[in-house]
Amino acid sequence: MSDYNFAYLDEQTKRMIRRAILKGLAIPGYQVPFASREMPMPYGWGTGGVQVSAAVLTPDDTFKVIDQGADDTTNAVSIRRFFEKTAGVAVTEATAEASVIQTRHRIPEEVLRADQILVYQVPIPEPLRFLEPSEVETRKMHSLEEYGLMHVKLYEDISQHGAIATSYAYPVKVEGRYVMDPSPIPKFDNPKLEMAAIQLFGAGREQRIYAVPPYAKVVSLDFEDFPFEASKADHACDLCGAEDSYLDELIVDDAGGRLFMCSDTDYCSTRRKAGHVGAQGVPLGEDAA
């Protein structure tokens, strides 16, 4: 262990965050204000998610962090090391082995279980913020369930682009009451928001915590004649051949060569270990990586 209190934060701060988490679970989709602390990382790097993780972690947990699906990016590695050092928790890159998963902008491809907790890093928790800059007004709109403006925005998408062009941070309605920003996950992930695991959302700079309990109804906003569609690149993963996973597009050379690969690195490598090979892939172990 280190010289930090368990999981870095002091106990009174954790109690305050824990109370906010319970309120969030009791009022799904409602953004509970909390007194966000300065964390030893800049805003935008997951200070909200880190504070929520610090409040829920126990020494028995196995912790996984993903950034856009990847376990090996700077952000994910530093947060994982942070809790390895300050909470002494075991860490993993395997989705199935993790009990707490902190995520930036993705939901893992593998279906999560009831004993797992998914913690989201949220930049702007207020789904109405870009439509109405005043917090006083957006709070009033939530209290009156006045979400017409959001439908106008989606309608304007259709009138300009012929389809709902919003492709990430796609607004959802939770339990038929609160419109919620699911954080900037691709809309491909929206159907997965109805899951067996507990989902907690932390926005550090904006000082809000919200939650979606297991099996809560989460509906992506749409229109009868323009129903919601969970879209992804029309391609299979070039490394593992998966056709059901969300893909990143990579430019791999100066000649415009492209490669599509799973954004969920654990999902991709698990499939490759199982022997799946995509169009540009080589069996695992033979490539330089």
Binding site: N5, F6, A7, E11, K14, R15, R18, A55, V56, L57, T58, P59, D60
Partner: peptide
Amino acid sequence: PIDAAHAFR
């Protein structure tokens, strides 16, 4: 810190 973490969970 540890007991409270387990209890809260």
